[in-house]
C-alpha cells in the first residue's frame, strides 16, 4: 500500500521511510506540507499519510484541513506526528481532520499498529464504495443485457437533447425491435430468448461509438442514441446498426438462429426543446412503419420542427437519475 511521509526533518523522514519500507509500504517522502498536499491530490496518490505537525509552507493540521475540504476524492487516512502532548493540541489536531496522532519519537510497533487501523478503515471504505457502485449499476442497468435500463437511457437522452439544443448539434434516436421475437420465445423457450437478447445487446454496443448510448427500452426493444451525429450520415449509421444484427446467425443452446431488427429513426438538429416522450413517439411511429413494410428495414421519421419549447418543459427542471 502507498503511504506518504511529510516531515521537514531529514533524519526523521529517513527513519520513517526505512521503517515503513521494511513493513511493506510503498513510500513517498516529502519535506513540507505543500508537497504533501500535492501528493495527496493525485488521482492514484497515497491514501495513508504520516504528517509532521510542524512543517514549512503548510503545517500538518493545515494539510488535514485542505484534504478534508475536498469531497470528490476517496478517503485519506491521516496520522499527525507530534511532540505536542497537551489535550488541547490533540483536540486541535483531530479537529483539523486528522484520524490519529502519534507522539515523536515514534515507537515502531505502535506506528505499525496504528497504520494497520488506517488500512482497515480504508478497506472498509473500499467495500462501501464498491457496494454503492454495484447498487448504482443495478439501478441504472438492465439485469439481463447489462445495457442501460429504460429509466437510465431516458434520462441520458433528455440530457443529450438538452445539450445538443444548447450547442446546436444533431442527435439521432433509433428505436429497434427484434423481428418475430415472440415466435423465438414460443419455439425455443425463454432461455434461448435471453441468449439472443444478450447477443443483440453486444452487437448493438459493438456497432456504436463509445460515446453513444444503448439501452433496453422494453422486452425486445432497444433504444440507441447517436450523439452529435450529422443527419447526412445518420441513415448509413442506422443501416450499419441494423445489419450488425442480421449479418450472421446468433449461436444459442438450441443452435444458430438468424434474426433481424426493424428500426425507426428520428434525426434532426432542429427539434427545438421537445419532450423525450414526444420524440420517442415519433421514432416509434417510424418503427411501426418499418414493421409494416416487411421488417428488417429502417424507416426515418419526419417530424415537424417546433421552435418554441412547451411551457411545461421549461418550467420543470430536467430530472437526472445517473
Amino acid at each position: 500500500m502507498k503511504i506518504l511521509i511529510a516531515d521537514d526533518d531529514a533524519l526523521s523522514r529517513r527513519l520513517l521511510e526505512k521503517t515503513l519500507e521494511r513493513a511493506g509500504y510503498e513510500v513517498t517522502a516529502v519535506e513540507n506540507g505543500k508537497q504533501a498536499l500535492e501528493q495527496l491530490s493525485k488521482l492514484e496518490g497515497p491514501r495513508l499519510a504520516l504528517l509532521d505537525w510542524v512543517m514549512p509552507e503548510l503545517d500538518g493540521p493545515g494539510v488535514c484541513r485542505a484534504v478534508r475540504t475536498r469531497s470528490e476524492q476517496t478517503y485519506i487516512y491521516m496520522v499527525l506526528l507530534t511532540s505536542k502532548g497537551t489535550k488541547e493540541e490533540t483536540v486541535f489536531g483531530l479537529e483539523s481532520g486528522a484520524d490519529d496522532y502519534l507522539t515523536k519519537p515514534v515507537n515502531t510497533e505502535e506506528l505499525r499498529a496504528r497504520l494497520r487501523v488506517g488500512e482497515r478503515i480504508l478497506l472498509l471504505e473500499d467495500r462501501l464504495v464498491e457496494a454503492r457502485e454495484n447498487m448504482r449499476f443495478r439501478a441504472t442497468h438492465d439485469t439481463l443485457t447489462e445495457l442501460l435500463n429504460r429509466g437510465a437511457i431516458m434520462d441520458l437522452l433528455a440530457r443529450e437533447l438538452n445539450r445538443s439544443h444548447r450547442e446546436k448539434k444533431s442527435t439521432t434516436i433509433l428505436l429497434g425491435d427484434v423481428d418475430h421475437f415472440k415466435r423465438i420465445n414460443d419455439t425455443y423457450g425463454h432461455v434461448v430468448g435471453d441468449e439472443i437478447l444478450i447477443e443483440i445487446a453486444n452487437r448493438l454496443l459493438g456497432a456504436v461509438r463509445s460515446y453513444d448510448f444503448v439501452g433496453r427500452y422494453g422486452g425486445e426493444e432497444f433504444l440507441v442514441v447517436l450523439n452529435s451525429c450529422d443527419p447526412a450520415f445518420a441513415p448509413a449509421r442506422a443501416e450499419a446498426i441494423r445489419k450488425s444484427i442480421s449479418k450472421s446467425p446468433i449461436q444459442t443452446a438450441k443452435g444458430s438462429l438468424s434474426l433481424t431488427m426493424s428500426l425507426g429513426a428520428l434525426m434532426s438538429s432542429d427539434w427545438g426543446l421537445r419532450s423525450v416522450e414526444e420524440l420517442l413517439h415519433e421514432a416509434d411511429t417510424a418503427l411501426y412503419e418499418a414493421k409494416a413494410s416487411g421488417r428488417d428495414c429502417l424507416r426515418i421519421a419526419q417530424p415537424t420542427a417546433k421552435t418554441e419549447p412547451p411551457a411545461a418543459l421549461l418550467s420543470q427542471p430536467m430530472r437526472l437519475r445517473l
Binding site: 526533518d9 531529514a10 533524519l11 529517513r14 527513519l15 526505512k18 521503517t19 521494511r22 519519537p105 515502531t108
Partner: peptide
C-alpha cells in the same frame, strides 16, 4: 538500535544526516 531494528545501514544513514544537519 531498537528504533532502527539493528539495521546498520540505516544507522549510518541517520548518523550521516545528523552530522550534516
Amino acid at each position: 538500535l531498537e528504533r532502527v531494528d539493528n539495521d546498520q545501514e540505516l544507522l549510518r544513514d541517520l548518523l550521516n544526516i545528523f552530522k550534516e544537519d
